[in-house]
């Protein structure tokens, strides 16, 4: 069972950097696992922790939030604020015994297709080790 576990990842990608980065990974035909489902948001600062929790609750095994590099945010400071929020959320998830490695915040710029592919590959490997999400509705 554990061998054929394919994690589900929800990716919140910022419109200005990370979504373009993911696009670049696609157009340059880089290979990365198909486990990620991307959702485009205008800024990583748009990602309310409630979104992350909703994803986990609905059965996602991991959530990736990707935004611009520090100082590069299209809206000046969105990514800094997300950094604070996600850091706190991870601490809280750890306290509640939900592995905080299920949530990941990364900086991916529009030119970093390679990095995006690398992050997704690594994340899928990590999640395979962690196993399915216990918060999933209908089962514990």
């Amino acid at each position: 069972m554990a061998d054929d576990f394919e994690p589900n990842i929800i990716g919140f990608l910022c419109n200005w950097c990370s979504y373009a980065g993911a696009d670049l990974a696609g157009t340059s035909r880089m290979k990365y696992p198909p486990n990620i489902k991307s959702i485009r948001v205008m800024c990583s600062g748009r990602v309310d922790p409630i979104f992350i929790l909703e994803a986990l609750k609905k059965g996602a095994d991991g959530v990736l939030v990707a935004g611009c590099h520090p100082g590069d945010c299209h809206y000046q400071s969105g990514n800094y604020k997300t950094n604070r929020r996600i850091m706190l959320l991870k601490k809280l998830l750890d306290e509640l015994a939900i592995d905080s490695n299920r949530v990941r915040f990364e900086y991916v710029s529009a030119s970093e297709g390679q990095k995006f592919a690398h992050i997704v590959t690594e994340f899928v490997d990590d999640l395979k080790k962690i196993g399915p999400n216990p918060l999933k509705e209908g089962g514990t």
């Binding site: 604070r84 706190l88 915040f105 900086y107």
Partner: peptide
């Protein structure tokens, strides 16, 4: 308020 501001030297848990 804490989550409405940031400092450039906020700790980061991941490597750039």
């Amino acid at each position: 308020p804490l989550l409405a501001m940031f400092k450039p030297d906020d700790p980061e848990e991941f490597i750039l």
